[in-house]
Amino acid sequence: MAFLKRSPWMIHYDGSSCNGCDIEVLACLTPVYDVERFGIVNTGNPKHADIFLLTGAVNEQNREVVRNIYDQMPEPKVVVAVGICATSGGIFRECYNILGGADKVLPVDVYVPGCAARPESIIDGVVKALAVLEEKRRALPPRARRGRRAEASAQGGNA
């Protein structure tokens, strides 16, 4: 059964955004937009999260942080790049300290446009991400998440 779709927990990290997209991500949680209607919870803890919302471009110092958060999330997981900066670097693309969009460091599944991305489009992006999440769940070896042996072999396979 596909319960992942009904209970996506997200984690949000501010790459080097101007805050515009960040407060819009937070605004999604509050009464006007209330994403908990869809079972979406902002966990703030990578180990509990299924969806990684990244706002802002990636720079030299935070690439490790972003990578770290992603690695701590258990499979299956998806990455949503929120806003134009996370997509391509946006207006800051030519700044000396910017590496570029989130896809320089992570495999991005969904790009949400906008500067700043509106809460509606962020929610839309998350919903699109759910379909990707479901695909990834199906692709996961069925016993990988249970048995210790299966997990060990899966890790071996990845390496």
Partner: peptide, 14 residues
């Protein structure tokens, strides 16, 4: 600090 330093002051030259 420095996690979101972009260097936008220098962008003024471009």
């Amino acid at each position: 600090i420095g996690f979101i330093h972009r260097g936008l002051e220098k962008l003024v030259e471009k």
